Amino acid sequence: MTAIHPAGPAARPAPLAPGALPVVGHLRQLLTDPTGFLTSLPAHGDLVEIRLGPRPTYVLCGPELVSQVLLAGRRVSLRLHRRPAGVPRPAGSEGEQ
């Protein structure tokens, strides 16, 4: 089964790990063989998208990228979609959009 990104592959900042199922995403792999699934991700790139249910989540796999994030000392935010004008920011969210 092929997972399709709602904005299309060109809008994806990282490759999607294979095996995502509709609705549950990669939860089956994470529950049945978490170590095997997570250790397979670096073969797809330094930054890999997985799905926790329908929600996209990003896994840092490259050592340089992990170092950059750890040394930066802040949360990394990937802005995939801009919020439409007039839609309020969720409570507790940070940054500009």
Rank of each mutant, 00 (worst) to 15 (best):
E96K: 05
F37C: 02
E49H: 03
P84H: 06
V66Y: 00
P13G: 02
G86Q: 10
P22A: 15
L21V: 12
T39D: 11
H44C: 02
I4Y: 06
H5W: 15
E64M: 10
A85N: 08
A17N: 03
A10I: 09
P54V: 14
P88S: 13
H26D: 12
G36N: 09
A11N: 09
G19E: 10
R74C: 11
R74E: 13
P15N: 02
E94M: 13
G73C: 12
H5F: 14
S40L: 07
G45V: 08
G19W: 05
P6V: 08
H44T: 03
T39F: 07
A20L: 02
M1Y: 06
V69N: 14
R28M: 03
L16H: 01
G86Y: 05
S67F: 01
V87L: 14
A11K: 10
E94V: 15
E64V: 11
V59K: 04
D46E: 09
T2C: 11
T35Y: 07
A91N: 00
V59D: 13
R28C: 02
P34H: 00
R28Y: 04
G92A: 02
S93F: 09
A11L: 04
G45E: 01
T35C: 09
S67L: 07
L78F: 09
R82C: 00
H5Q: 10
S77F: 06
A43S: 11
T2R: 13
Q29M: 03
G36V: 13
A14K: 14
G95C: 12
A91S: 05
V87H: 04
P15Y: 02
R79D: 00
A91L: 03
R51T: 14
G86I: 05
E96H: 13
L60R: 10
D33R: 06
P42Y: 05
P88R: 07
P9Q: 00
T39P: 02
L27N: 07
R79K: 02
A17M: 04
V48K: 00
R74D: 01
L47V: 09
V24H: 13
V66R: 12
V24Y: 12
F37M: 10
P18N: 09
G45L: 09
V23E: 14
A7D: 11
Q97K: 02
L47S: 06
P90G: 14
R28G: 03
V87S: 06
R83A: 06
L78T: 11
A20P: 10
P90Y: 07
A10Y: 04
L52R: 15
L60F: 12
G73M: 13
L31P: 00
G25E: 10
S93E: 13
R74K: 11
S67M: 01
G86F: 01
L27G: 08
Y58F: 15
M1R: 04
P63Y: 01
L52K: 12
V69G: 07
P42I: 08
L80K: 07
A85D: 12
A91I: 01
L65D: 04
A10K: 15
P22C: 12
A3Y: 12
G8Y: 03
G62C: 02
P22E: 08
H44Y: 05
T39Q: 11
E64H: 14
G19S: 04
L52F: 15
L70V: 08
I50G: 13
L38N: 01
L47K: 08
G25A: 03
R75V: 15
H81W: 10
R82N: 07
P54T: 15
L27M: 13
F37H: 06
G25K: 04
G86T: 11
L47W: 13
Q29D: 15
S77C: 14
L38T: 02
